[in-house]
Simulated assay, not measured.
Amino acid sequence: MVTPFDDVYVFSTGHTYSTSSERAYATGDCPKCGAHQFVVVAVTGTQDAAWLRCLKCKLAVVANHGVTSPPQLPLRVPSGLPVDEGAVWNEIRECLGVGAFTASVMLCRKLLMHVAVAHGLPAKNAKDFAPTFAQCVDRLLAEGIVTKRMEPWIERIREVGNEANHEIAPVGKESALDVATFTQKLLELAYEMDDTMSKAQPAQ
């Protein structure tokens, strides 16, 4: 019978447990496939470090004091994202996963401006300058991607993004997750809704 240990080789120190032991399994979210159960290949006596393997996709994960590598990625990927937007959004999630909160906020601000350009805002003006954040917001409003009621969370992206761009003080986890969550909603409105509607159209 195939088991998760078939291709795993470990150095024995005399402390072992069987695959029938409760210690041999752990729960969590796999960073790769999203499955929820791991087999514990090895663990320290104090259980502050563990070497895990996903039971579904066989991804190897290391946990040190509750921090896993590779990290679990927060939030989700909206459907219908173009390749470039999808790549940047995944990079934002990776930054959040490893605690690079300032970098994630700066990328969120950049992504918002890119969405505005993708929806008709010129990338450069007559003086070869990129659009301002306010011009990007105006474009998103004009295109109906966001409404006046959504301006406060757009302002939140601007506010925290300005701090990340112009000040050395790092952005905290809560603020970064706020900005990323708002950015996810923007992507849903800009791309996912149209993608969902196109898939819902009856076959001709």
Rank of each mutant, 00 (worst) to 15 (best):
M1K: 12
V2L: 15
P4D: 15
F5T: 12
V8T: 02
V8A: 03
V10I: 13
T13S: 14
G14Q: 08
G14Y: 13
G14V: 15
T16Y: 14
T16H: 14
T16I: 08
T19I: 05
T19Y: 08
S21H: 12
S21R: 01
E22S: 10
R23V: 07
A26I: 01
A26M: 12
A26R: 05
T27I: 08
G28H: 04
G28T: 04
P31T: 06
P31M: 05
K32R: 09
C33G: 02
C33H: 04
A35N: 08
Q37T: 07
V40M: 05
V40A: 03
V41H: 03
T44K: 06
G45W: 05
D48A: 07
D48Y: 04
A49K: 07
A49C: 07
W51Y: 09
L52H: 08
L52P: 06
C54V: 08
C54A: 05
L55P: 01
C57E: 02
K58L: 07
L59T: 12
A60M: 10
A63L: 12
A63I: 09
H65R: 12
V67C: 05
T68D: 07
T68M: 11
S69L: 09
S69C: 08
P70R: 13
P70K: 12
Q72D: 08
P74I: 14
G80E: 10
V83Q: 14
D84W: 08
E85R: 14
E85K: 01
E85S: 13
E85D: 09
G86I: 04
A87K: 13
A87E: 15
V88K: 11
N90W: 01
E91Y: 15
I92S: 07
R93G: 01
C95L: 10
C95H: 14
G99L: 10
F101M: 00
T102W: 12
A103H: 11
S104N: 14
L107A: 15
R109V: 11
R109H: 14
K110V: 14
L111A: 07
H114D: 12
V115H: 06
V115E: 13
A116S: 13
H119I: 03
G120S: 10
G120W: 09
P122D: 09
P122G: 13
K124H: 13
K127G: 08
K127W: 10
P131F: 06
F133M: 00
A134K: 07
C136G: 11
D138G: 03
D138T: 06
L140E: 00
A142R: 06
I145M: 02
K148Q: 04
K148F: 01
R149N: 05
M150T: 00
M150W: 01
E151Y: 01
P152Y: 02
E155L: 03
R156H: 02
I157F: 03
R158V: 01
E159M: 03
E159L: 02
E163F: 04
H166Y: 05
E167Y: 03
E167N: 05
A169H: 03
P170A: 02
V171N: 03
G172T: 02
A176S: 00
D178E: 03
D178K: 08
T181H: 09
F182H: 07
F182T: 06
F182Q: 09
F182D: 09
T183G: 06
K185Y: 08
K185P: 00
E188A: 04
E192H: 03
M193Q: 12
M193G: 00
M193D: 03
D195W: 15
T196R: 11
A200R: 01
A200T: 00
Q201L: 11
Q201G: 01
A203R: 12
Q204Y: 13
Q204P: 14
